[in-house]
């Protein structure tokens, strides 16, 4: 049976892995901070009106 040619998979060096980890950690922190920021800003903008809706 003829062997199929697969695309080359990048093998990361330990340094590249460390850099990737640093990027992922920073991105996670930024996304978390954005969630908190958007929540706090929404409350600040709407104030008491945030609860003023029909249930």
């Amino acid at each position: 049976m003829k062997e199929e040619a697969y695309p080359t998979v990048a093998r990361l060096t330990p340094e590249e892995l460390a850099r990737q980890k640093s990027r992922s950690r920073a991105l996670g922190l930024v996304l978390g901070a954005l969630v908190i920021l958007f929540f706090v800003v929404t409350i600040a903008k709407l104030g008491g009106s945030v609860f003023n809706r029909e249930l």
Partner: peptide, 11 residues
């Protein structure tokens, strides 16, 4: 490069 070489500090 196939894989980004940047760290968070570079950004």
């Amino acid at each position: 490069p196939l894989v980004s070489k940047a760290t968070a500090k570079d950004y």
